[in-house]
Design a protein around this nucleic acid. Structure first.
Length: 158
DNA sequence: GCCAACGTTGGC
DNA sequence: GCCAACGTTGGC
């Protein structure tokens, strides 16, 4: 009994980690670490599963946009960067027994033929319910199957 | 660089 | 457990 595939939107500042940074590892995995928000943490730890689809969103740039898709390739597991004092995401409250923060691994999927900008998404009534448009600060957020298909179509890869 | 939105912290 | 102060995010 497998659960239905679910869909998510992951935000990242491309100057920090971009969709192209994921590309050299098409068959391997990259840690989605450093998430330090409890709501996003709960999704990573409890809800996001291998095989789920990810809209890869670039934020904090002149034209924020979804630029492609990726795939989740692990269960949620403790984010070790919280234990490393040398890491910028270090959290002194975290320990091995109480990791606090979680991450998943992701794999490069496909680039959009053209990016789907935030401005464009705002123009489509079909996307008006998106978490991105209502609670923009959440860095890991759910996407409905309908929103997923609609945005892939806008991106030219449906 | 500004500022609104909003999550987190800490005093009470 | 409330809520004011504070810090961060992220669009513009």
């Amino acid at each position: 009994m497998t659960r239905n595939r679910r869909f998510w939107l992951f935000k990242t500042e491309p100057s920090c980690f971009s969709f192209d940074d994921l590309k050299p590892r098409p068959s391997s995995r990259e840690h989605w670490d450093g998430v330090r928000n409890f709501q996003a943490r709960n999704l990573l730890r409890d809800e996001i599963k291998p095989g789920d689809g990810v809209l890869f969103y670039h934020s904090s740039i002149p034209e924020p946009a979804v630029v492609g898709i990726a795939e989740v390739v692990s269960e949620g597991y403790p984010d070790g960067t919280a234990l490393d004092p040398a890491c910028e995401h270090f959290d002194p409250r975290a320990s091995r027994d109480n990791p606090i923060w979680y991450m998943v691994d992701v794999r490069y999927g496909r680039p959009f033929k053209r990016p789907v900008t935030l401005a464009e998404m705002k123009m489509h009534p079909e996307l008006a319910g998106m978490v991105l448009l209502k609670r923009s600060r959440l860095s890991v957020q759910p996407v409905t199957p309908h929103e997923w298909e609609y945005i892939l179509r806008l991106g030219g890869i449906d």
